[in-house]
Simulated assay, not measured.
Amino acid sequence: MIWIAIRMLTGDAQKFYGLVFGIAFSTLLITQQLTIFVNLIERGASGVYNESSADVWVMDTVSRTTEVNFPMPSTALDKVRAVPGVEWAVPHLRAAASVRTATGDLEGVSVVGVDDATLIGLPRAMVEGSTDVLSQPDSVIIDDVGVTNMFEDGQDPIGQRLELNDQRAVIRAIGDAIPSFTSQVTLYTKYSQALRYVPGTRNRLTFVLVGATDGVSAQQLTDRIEADTGLRARTRDEFAQDGIDFIIQNTGIPLNFGITVALGFVVGVAIVGLTFSLFIRDNIKQFGALKAIGVTNGKIRRMVGAQAALVGLIGYGLGILGTVMFIHAFSGVPTFKGFYIPWQVPLVSLMAVTVILALTGWLALRNVLKTEPASVFR
């Protein structure tokens, strides 16, 4: 009977393709929008992800993310180093600045100052050049997305001179970094050099990056630092989550993407429901004939379930494939750099497709179950 149900479905090519298109479109829209949403909000933690050495981030009590921060006095570094369980602690500066390029254009940038001795705080990999260039005077490293934003027509940024808050800066390397939420240009330099580039205030230290000694967990160390110094300490994972939560709580992104995903679900229900109902109506006599020869309602349900499963399997596969092709096609665009499809997203799409098929299949099945066998002979 399952084979008969499949032949009935594929025999009406127009409605079969319409059902597959409805499921594929809904899957594509839901999966693509959820993928972009997840990757976009994760950009709020890019500053933490780009620095993989620190177990704990220490900051002022009012600081919330790598971008929303408040400077501390330089004495905070010594306080943190004195806490038991701290293997090493280095200064870390993050501040906004304005850059004037050689062509006279003005660009807002984020300046990141890393420890002079260890260079902890730099991106994990380099696209061009090495971290050794920071030993040269007035040297900065630009992130690869910043190259695209600041230099056009494939212009080589290496050796380019910038005017950074009335100070000379020379780009000598390109870092492979995860873009920030705003995709702002990021310049990396030594901490002592960054103090010259950033407008002077009484307190300049933004963060203290800390490594834990063996046998001391990051959570234990954060508790000790907060108790001994009165500063705010967060583990790497906690601080990354803080950046994500800040975007969710302070922007309209979740609502906007939620509306789009909901529309994808509604469109799927509308298209699939209408097409499935038309298919059932056009084949109501065939179902009536089957009931006339003794096919039970249970077998009818299994037949309709098999039809829905086939449509769902093909449409879902095409929708996921379309999302993968979309991400791959735009992987070279700086805005989509590092985008991936989390494994949870296809599962959410699968659940949505299952609900769509169950709902539309149930609505269409009611007419079949109400059909009297004798109606086929009228």
Rank of each mutant, 00 (worst) to 15 (best):
I259N: 01
L263D: 00
R236D: 04
R64M: 03
V170C: 08
A262D: 03
T371M: 14
I300E: 05
Y188W: 13
P157Q: 01
I36R: 01
F207Q: 10
G154W: 08
G159H: 10
F25T: 06
V68Q: 09
I142V: 13
A194D: 07
G47H: 05
V56L: 03
R234D: 06
A102P: 04
T371V: 15
N69Q: 08
I142R: 03
T323V: 10
N165W: 09
L195M: 15
A54N: 02
Q193A: 14
E51A: 00
L187P: 08
W362G: 13
R7H: 12
P91F: 10
D153T: 01
Q241D: 12
L209C: 07
T75E: 15
T186S: 04
T213M: 14
A125M: 04
L119S: 04
D116W: 13
F21P: 04
A177L: 01
I271H: 02
V133N: 04
G264E: 01
S110G: 09
G230R: 09
V333F: 03
L313F: 15
G22E: 05
I248G: 06
T103R: 14
N69A: 11
I178R: 08
Y17N: 07
F151I: 02
R232F: 09
A125V: 01
K190C: 06
G44V: 00
G264C: 01
P157M: 11
K15H: 08
D245E: 10
S63D: 05
F265D: 00
G113H: 02
L209G: 11
I300C: 10
D115M: 08
Q219S: 12
Y191L: 11
S52H: 11
P157K: 03
K15A: 11
V353D: 09
I4K: 15
E128K: 12
T35K: 04
A329G: 02
F70P: 01
V62A: 01
S139M: 10
D166Q: 13
M59R: 11
K291A: 14
G230Q: 12
P91N: 09
A227G: 02
G264T: 00
F265R: 01
G305V: 09
I36A: 14
G258D: 05
W57G: 05
L274C: 03
G22C: 09
W57F: 15
V324F: 14
L359A: 14
I171L: 10
A125Q: 03
